[in-house]
Amino acid sequence: MKTGRLIELLARGAGPRRQDHTRRLALTLACGLGLALALITVGPGVREDFMEARMPVMWKTLFSAAAAAAMLPLAARLMRPGRPLAWRIGAGLAFVGIAALATVIALIGEAPEQRMQAWLGGGFPWCVVLVPLLAAPTAALLVWLARSCAPTRLTLTGAAIGALSGGVGAMAYSMYCPIDSIAFVTTWYVISIALCAAFGALAGARLLRW
């Protein structure tokens, strides 16, 4: 087929197109968060002392939401091509830096003999496993959204989608997470989210091709 003929075929009956990317992204994230919360409820369940622990639950949720918010501009930007990234990678890295600083300050505030306990939580940090699992629905929805857009830097887009989903997954995880030490959260939540980003980077080139 000649190219002129193809153009004719494409153009004929081409109606108006809405550009509602922001709304679709917001809807996707809301659905992802809803699914993650449903998973937490039917799975391990919210923590038993939920009512008494409202304050720590709230700040952990806010911390996770801040992580998601730090990754959101990069992920949103990468979905549509031809736009400079500017400060958006830096926003994600800055969040990691601030979390590391918060960890150090929180640990200085602890009594020396309790530092290890406050940092490692005493036991296996389950968030490393559960946050990626809770992030999976959001990640799947975001991949689906991204494929309807036109990402051209697939590995980076995958990493950004992974990290954003990780933030959303961590928001749901904080309903369950029984450990309230600041240093634990600023370390292990960030590691869990970084793990999601790594998965995303590895899967990105395969899943996001269009």
């Binding site: 809405r18 979905m79 549509r80 091509p81 036109a150 051209t152």
Partner: peptide, 23 residues
């Protein structure tokens, strides 16, 4: 054509077009 709604009018059109072409 199928992805024409991904053009962001705040940025140059040719940047968008050649990003897709390069891809």
């Amino acid at each position: 054509h199928t992805k024409r709604d991904t053009y962001d009018p705040a940025y140059p059109l040719t940047a968008w077009m050649y990003a897709i072409a390069r891809y």
